[in-house]
């Protein structure tokens, strides 16, 4: 099952205009990700980690090359089609959680299901199940500003996982967390990866995260420097 290619990047290049010139954020990237991978993009700031995640997440398109995600060519998708792809198949976890401030925990987690036009009972069942995964079922009525950093990120994980996406993109998910919370979050993600078969792709330069990854892709100046599959002590957590 793990050999099924879910993401394919062929010569993906991304350039941004800077003043009168251009900045190359990604330079002919060739990578594939298989279903159920727990992998991470590692590299210094400006190496192109987030840009690559944004292209995989269909939030951005490559300047050159082809990015295929779950059979969809990202560059050829309309706004509506890419929104549908994100809504049904891709979950996002951000460094600063990006919880919607006026919604409760329940409503935040419920949001992607509202966009999928699920019924109220389906939504409630799925949300409570997702909150159970992260151990915050009792926090359903709380507002995000009443949560600690670790709790906020767990709610963000529940929001990303509630729709059971094939791919989960986590951009520096532990950057704002202390060590204990970071480990707790990573163990939870690893568990969801194993139980639900979701493909996790991280961008990180956090050593703690790297100890959980099965595959580490080192990026530097927009190029793949090293793509290694490793056996870590925390992989079985």
């Amino acid at each position: 099952m793990k050999t099924e290619t879910i993401i394919s990047l062929e010569n993906v290049t991304k350039r941004f205009p800077v003043g009168e010139g251009e900045f190359t954020a990604l330079d002919h990237i060739n990578l594939t990700f298989t279903k159920g991978e727990f992998s991470g993009l590692v590299g210094p700031s400006g190496s192109g980690k987030t840009t690559l995640l944004n292209i995989i997440g269909s939030l951005d398109v490559p300047t050159e090359g082809k990015a295929t995600v779950i059979g969809h060519d990202i560059a050829s998708l309309s706004h509506k089609a890419s929104a549908k792809l994100r809504n049904h198949h891709i979950g996002f976890i951000f460094q600063v959680f990006n919880l919607l401030p006026v919604y409760t925990v329940f409503e935040n987690v419920e949001f992607p299901l509202l966009l999928q036009n699920k019924t109220a009972s389906e939504r409630k069942k799925a949300v409570m199940e997702a909150l159970d995964w992260i151990g915050l079922a009792d926090y359903a009525k709380k507002k995000p500003n009443k949560l600690s950093g670790g709790e906020g990120q767990r709610v963000a994980i529940a929001r990303a996982m509630v729709k059971r996406p094939e791919i989960l993109i986590a951009d520096e998910p532990t950057a704002n967390l202390d060590a204990a919370n970071a480990h707790s979050i990573l163990k939870m993600m690893k568990k969801l990866n194993r139980e639900l078969g979701t493909t996790f792709i991280f961008s990180t330069h956090d050593e703690k995260v790297m100890t959980y990854l099965e595959r580490i892709i080192h990026l530097r100046d927009g190029k793949v420097e090293l793509d290694e599959r490793i056996k870590n002590k925390n992989q079985a957590s």
Binding site: N87, F94, N98, F111
Partner: peptide, 14 residues
């Protein structure tokens, strides 16, 4: 950021 989050969660721009 909220607008970006809406889009990331699957809302169309319209």
């Amino acid at each position: 950021k909220e607008i970006g989050t809406y889009v990331a969660l699957g809302m169309t721009r319209s």
